[in-house]
Nucleic acid binder design. Structure first.
Ligand SMILES: [Mg+2]
Length: 514
DNA sequence: ATCACTTGCAA
DNA sequence: TATTGCAAGTGAT
């Protein structure tokens, strides 16, 4: 009753975790009006630890033990005695009580109370529900993929040893480097801190120099899939047959979420072999999966924030943005697929604050041409240029960059005496408002969708968030309703100078949704 | 055990 | 010398 009573207000540290743990034991937690973890994160997302003591230390408060003291480290880890834990709990409660007022005051001073109270706090309930629900997994298929991949990898290793004329650990970049560049004397030897570089860019250049290269590349692909996505996911399935990822809500410096144990925000999709993994993610009986993703949300956010006329017009006319960009920077009307690809890279680069050199490396052109593209881009999209210069200037002056919803990222590196750090600081400053505002927007959409689904007492569930995409488990009786509801809310949850566009796709597994 | 490093997966 | 992440395997400590 105390826990579930909305009218009894609670002040806590990490409401999301509390809700998930309590739910597991059959208790509901409602009425949270202050979460110190979230408040501290909003006040400064660089302070990113989840240890209570470490967080409050940033507010000059030290009368609480470190987690390590309460639980011990490593093998010595143990559940503390009741007395020890009680003291810890009471100290935490006291700290929350004492810090609450000044933290809320600071949030209000910064115009961040709305972000705290109306976005992050309600979002913690949405995320708790997503974590508790979990996503269903086809264990049989996962085991089958395990067997098939193991066989392929074993064969590849034998072939690679034979081609090398020596047995070695193919997974060791050190040993592989020595085989390729010392024993086989292949070109493009490039040093890293610890030895030769053997990453995919290097291997690609070596493709036609020796038949071992192709095999090594296939080995890399398959062993990545095997270790991280087949064995890794198998080990993450709980006794309910589901995977329950944990979202870190108070961690990234831009305001994005991240996903751990396992990370469900980096499931393969770009290449066919890896994409197969997606077939193991299936809905519960009587449901389908619905994936809804924002189209070009970061460029749309940029168009809005920079008030860039040409870009705004293009989005309002629902033009293909990369083709439009190509027309502008190449000064012509007919755009080849290569030119579109290059323009797409430029658009990406703009969001990341990329240099001409970086762009040239990315799309294999010479730095001079890359420089021309970028110059032309800023000429044709002058609003972007003005905006980026303003962001860097403001950030240097204020110490932080900010999003549409006043989320801050402090960037002290901008005043560093070291050139590289200053340059990195500029890129961080240019990227933070874009990536961060996109994160704000999808968070708002999640809250509104979750509220609406509860109001309508729907059986469907929000399962996953992948930065610009939401995945739902949709009851077969609610398909039409959910398709409409999700697009409607995602596209209209905020109003920018450009429309937001959402693509939806329904399927029997995560492979089919797209 | 823990850590730094390299590599590769996603938006 | 492109942003934000997580995690596996190796090899050193
Ligand atoms: Mg998208």
């Amino acid at each position: 009753m105390y826990l579930s009573d909305e009218a009894i207000k609670k002040n806590v540290f990490n409401a999301k975790m509390m809700k998930v743990v309590l739910k597991r034991d059959g208790y509901e937690l409602n009425g949270v009006e202050f979460d110190l973890l979230l408040a501290a994160y909003i006040l400064n997302p660089n302070n990113t630890k989840e240890d209570f003591r470490v967080v409050v230390s940033n507010f000059e408060y030290d009368d609480v033990s470190y987690l390590e003291e309460v639980y011990q480290k490593g093998v010595k880890y143990s559940v503390p005695s009741i007395d020890k834990y009680s003291l810890y709990a009471v100290k935490k409660a006291k700290a929350i009580k004492e810090l609450k007022k000044e933290m809320i005051k600071e949030l209000k001073t910064n115009n961040q109370y709305d972000l705290f109270y109306n976005i992050e706090l309600p979002l913690s309930s949405v995320l708790a529900s997503m974590e508790s629900t979990g996503i269903n997994v086809d264990m049989g298929l996962l085991h089958k993929l395990n067997y098939e991949n193991k066989e392929k990898i074993d064969k590849l290793v034998l072939e690679i040893h034979s081609l090398a004329g020596v047995e070695f650990n193919v997974s060791s970049p050190k040993q592989l480097g020595e085989v390729l560049f010392d024993k086989l004397n292949l070109p493009y030897a490039k040093k890293t801190k610890t030895g030769y570089s053997t990453n995919v860019d290097i291997l690609n250049k070596l493709r036609h120099h020796h038949p071992i290269i192709e095999k090594v590349m296939t080995y890399r692909t398959l062993s990545k899939l095997y270790s991280t996505y087949i064995v890794g996911l198998e080990n993450s399935v709980l006794s309910d047959g589901k995977i329950h990822t944990i979202y870190r809500q108070a961690f990234t410096s831009t305001g994005r979420l991240s996903s751990v144990e396992p990370n469900l925000q980096n499931i393969p999709i770009r290449y066919a072999e890896g994409r197969e993994i997606r077939k193991v993610f299936i809905p519960q009986k009587g449901n389908l999966l619905l994936a809804s993703d924002y189209s070009q949300i970061e460029l749309r956010v940029l168009a809005d924030m920079a008030n860039e006329e040409t870009l705004i017009k293009a989005f309002n006319n629902n033009e293909d943005i990369h083709t439009m960009t190509a027309k502008q920077i190449f000064d012509k009307d007919e755009i080849s697929s290569l030119e579109r690809r290059q323009a797409k890279a430029v658009n990406f680069g703009i969001i990341y604050g990329q240099s001409a050199w970086g762009l040239s490396e990315e799309i294999n052109i010479n730095p001079k041409d890359a420089e021309k593209f970028i110059t032309k881009y800023y000429e044709r999209f002058n609003g972007i240029k003005v905006f980026m210069d303003k962001v860097v200037g403001d950030t240097k002056r204020l110490g932080y960059a900010e999003t549409i919803y006043n989320r801050r990222r402090y960037i002290p590196e901008l005043n560093s005496s070291i050139y590289m750090q200053r340059e990195a600081g500029k890129r961080n400053a240019m990227n933070a408002p874009i990536q961060g505002s996109a994160a704000d927007i999808i968070k708002i959409a999640m809250i509104k969708i979750y509220d609406e689904m509860n109001k309508l007492k729907l059986k469907s569930k929000l399962l996953l968030q992948i930065h610009d995409e939401l995945v739902f488990e949709v009851d077969k009786d609610e398909i039409d309703l959910m398709e409409k509801l999700v697009v409607e809310v995602m596209e209209n949850c905020i109003s920018l100078k450009v429309p937001l566009k959402v693509d939806e796709s329904m399927g029997k597994n995560l492979f089919e949704t797209k």
